[in-house]
């Protein structure tokens, strides 16, 4: 069943707790986490409300460590982390209001998907865990009656099992660590629609990714983390502007690179250049103009272009730029 066709499973009944109704979902204040000499997260401060917020950062930036601290799986070395106004590491009830789909692929491989999700439901104190588990599996587009063990599932199916287990307690805060990894484009689209659906229902979703395009489709709120530091936060469109404003680096190889580069510089098409042998590394703030003109200039000079390759169109380069600007 498609996730857009299926409906969110009705929340399992619980006891009201009016005190938490007015609190923000997540508050992180001046948090640092070190592992020996390694600083994984450094002086990070932010707060998050309802809706989808994307945590964007390259691999090893500290996203998973931050998520682990939010869930209480590890304590911050410095600073405070509050989820629904409490410390999830010490408050049992708050843990019952968090849904986590961890980054690691590990599942209890000897269980079926239904057993795995029902176990999650049972350990959350849900009265009819099997029924609830079936609803959640259908919601993520999996067959609840599949007799295969999850150990035999594909990566994409395992991701969805994790999501179903994270949803089983109807959590207020959903933490999804790289949930789109291993999914095909169709599954990614479904998942992203599902995230929007949950966000529109007042849930707080924190979704990490290292892929810019995914983040662009998830929502307008982003937190950008690099080298353990929060380097940007706010509206995704602002990040996009920063990306467009940054200098781009292009590697150019030609049969007479030096002559070509000299003319490009004289026409102010480049902002910086270094040449080694026949290869030039060119920095330009106006990548569109550069792209339009380099072939024209080469033709004018009778220079044969062998290679024109952007070297920093990846996310790492954006992060480097954001970090260095600070």
């Amino acid at each position: 069943m498609s996730v857009v066709e299926s409906s969110l499973p009705p929340p399992a009944p619980r006891t009201p707790d009016a005190a938490s109704a007015v609190l923000p979902f997540v508050q992180v204040e001046d948090v640092t986490k070190t592992f020996g000499d390694v600083v994984a997260v450094s002086k990070v401060t932010f707060s998050v409300g309802s809706g989808v917020t994307a945590l964007l950062g390259p691999n090893g930036a500290g996203k998973s460590t931050l998520f682990r601290m939010l869930c209480g799986l590890t304590a911050p070395s410095l600073g405070t982390v509050r989820v629904l106004g409490e410390n999830a590491r010490t408050n049992r009830d708050v843990r019952g209001r968090i849904g986590l789909a961890p980054q690691q692929d590990a599942l209890l491989d000897r269980l079926t998907a239904l057993e795995f999700v029902a176990l999650a439901g049972e350990s959350h104190g849900i009265a009819e865990p099997l029924l609830r588990a079936s609803q959640c599996l259908e919601y993520v587009g999996l067959d609840a009656h599949d007799s295969k063990r999850v150990g035999a599932y594909s990566k994409g199916m395992r991701q969805r099992v994790k999501l179903a287990a994270a949803l089983v307690n109807d959590p207020d805060l959903l933490i999804l660590d790289e949930p789109l990894t291993g999914l095909d484009p169709l599954q990614r689209n479904r998942m992203i629609r599902l995230f929007h659906d949950l966000g529109n229902r007042g849930k707080c979703l924190l979704v990490s990714s290292h892929v810019l395009d995914e983040v662009a489709r998830m929502g307008s709120k982003v937190l950008v983390i690099a080298q353990g530091r929060l380097v940007a936060s706010g509206d995704y469109r602002r990040l996009r502007e920063l990306m467009d404003d940054r200098p781009h680096r292009v590697r150019v190889l030609a049969d007479d690179t030096r002559r070509l580069v000299a003319v490009l510089v004289s026409r102010a098409l480049v902002d910086g250049v270094s040449v080694r042998g026949d290869t030039a590394l060119i920095d330009t703030l106006d990548i569109d103009s550069f792209g339009r003109n380099i072939a024209v200039v080469a033709a004018e000079l009778g220079v044969r272009l062998l290679e024109v390759v952007p070297t920093d169109d990846d996310l790492e380069a954006v992060f480097r730029y954001l970090v260095e600007r600070r």
Partner: peptide, 21 residues
């Protein structure tokens, strides 16, 4: 925000862990 809490009894928690492990 969902303003609810649930409780898993000691007996139930023992049972869950025992069965799983």
């Amino acid at each position: 925000m969902n303003t609810v809490s649930r409780h898993v009894s000691w007996f139930k928690a023992v049972q869950i862990m025992h069965r799983l492990l």
